[in-house]
Design a binder for these strands. Structure first.
Lengths: 143, 143
DNA sequence: TATTTTCCTTCTGGTATGATAGGTAATAGA
DNA sequence: TCTATTACCTATCATACCAGAAGGAAAATA
């Protein structure tokens, strides 16, 4: 499993926010109800989105969360990487992974690199706007 | 992490066997030493390969394991699916997963389907022969 | 001041991962 | 027939991650 509920829920939350951009700040409680996800669990997810400057939160009455950029500026691959830490298919390609001392003679490394690149180029071909509008990528990425 | 050590080690074991096809049956102990992987752990991995008819084992002196098909006939994606159970990036696309009752209005489903397909088409574009020879895919798959 | 909301820290039950341990069954060769 | 070798089988274990739940503190509004 490449993507856990963290990544999946994060996208659903962002789509929800994008569809209600005009309404200003939206309480997490509302999003949790609409998306049928535990509000407490969503807290930990949104926290990560705040930390990475994808959304902003405002406390108190009338507060809530809203997108910090336009949906067109929010890249899906980037968001998933925030949530999952990494989208690398294997441990040896993860950021900050100790370089494998077998890599020079590893016959599978190139295969993994290719898979990593396939995932990277697919996911970074989508923005939040693509998800909201049609569910189709808006750029020229072709599978 | 899409691929655990099970899938990674399985490929290394298979490449090792492919490179020594002419030598007949190869004891797991040798493979474990060459690949620097715990023999006991490899047992559980090879067991799965036997179960899925990728390799055959013969007991006793002079015994060991060998490929059951030619490297050209062994598909990398298939092997990884045996080892990992599934290569689906998200739980909702896994084989036998309960169909999500939100799927009709899910704005992210198509994105996940595309990612699933990207992974599937990349991994199934490689055979064991490709890993052994050059580390490059032998078919016309283009990223 | 009361209410609403984010924000922060801690805890928990379940499951998967990456092994290790110890044995049984089959086979070949001396 | 005995012994060494090898695959095969079952059980156990430490650790980490997943998916939340709980309880409160801080800020903002009315």
């Amino acid at each position: 499993m490449l993507i856990s509920t963290k990544g999946r829920y994060a996208l659903r939350v962002l789509v929800d926010m994008a569809e209600r951009q005009a309404e200003g700040y939206i309480p997490l409680k509302e999003i949790a109800e609409r998306q049928e996800i535990s509000e407490k669990y969503l807290e930990s997810i949104v926290k990560e989105l705040v930390k990475n400057e994808v959304v902003t939160g405002v406390r108190g009455k009338g507060g809530g969360y809203r997108l910090r950029k336009t949906p067109e500026q929010i890249n899906v691959g980037e968001v998933l990487r925030y949530m999952e830490g990494s989208l690398s298919p294997v441990a040896c390609l993860e950021d900050g992974a100790a370089p494998c001392e077998r890599s020079a003679r590893c016959r599978t490394l190139e295969f993994w690199h290719g898979l990593d690149e396939a995932i990277r180029s697919y996911t970074s071909g989508y923005t939040l706007a693509d998800l909201v509008q049609t569910g189709q990528p808006g750029n020229d990425y072709v599978i």
